[in-house]
Design a binder for these strands. Structure first.
Lengths: 96, 96
DNA sequence: TAGATATTTAGCATATCATCTAAATATGGC
DNA sequence: GCCATATTTAGATGATATGCTAAATATCTA
């Protein structure tokens, strides 16, 4: 696994501090999803979701690509699978 | 390593979201310290440090015991060594 | 007991965060 | 080009977080 640059440490921890964002990450562990698909799992507005996704992108925890009018989000697995898998398994006791 | 209860997940991630608190945890990896010793490493007031320490205690990331007028803080290593050691090593690239 | 030291608690100001609605941008299909 | 759909951006607002100073609590020593 690659070691990441220190400057993004804060954005990673900050991104993980919100329960909705952690839930987004958990959803994405099952595979990539459009913004709309993700939104369907939450009560808050799409604008709010977009904001959460932006923070996750900044932290490089997720990636995005365009497919027509949709944007498809996926985990940045290189960082996520190793780190977050570990975190959820041992801290939350509820990974996949 | 013991699995922890889900209810403290939020307090753990929240505690880790602040850079000063992460720095406190890093300091404590070298051994237990009094509140005053910890305070000497930071610019903010002792009242603020006390607040940070409280959040770390709530998250069960640190423990405290009394020794006379001092309070001696230490890592709750059962949670910390496994989880945070991993996090700092791979995310921050700067653990020992 | 009085005074000094170590630390926390209380109360307050300011900064940051999560969320909303409304408007903007981009794409697809007719 | 026009309209519908998918999503983001902008701007505002209430809640939460971080920091301060002052006061309270606890312990040690003379």
């Amino acid at each position: 696994m690659a070691t990441t640059s220190p400057h993004q440490t804060q954005s990673v921890f900050q991104a993980l501090a919100d329960p909705s964002r952690r839930e987004i990450l958990r959803l994405l562990r099952q595979g990539e999803m459009t913004a709309g698909d993700i939104a369907a799992h939450f009560d808050f507005s799409r604008a709010s979701l977009s904001h959460h996704l932006n923070l996750l992108l900044q932290a490089e925890l997720v990636r995005v690509r365009k497919d027509g009018q949709r944007r498809i989000y996926s985990l940045n697995t290189s960082l996520f699978e190793d780190l977050l898998g570990f975190v959820f398994r041992f801290i939350e006791g509820s990974s996949d």
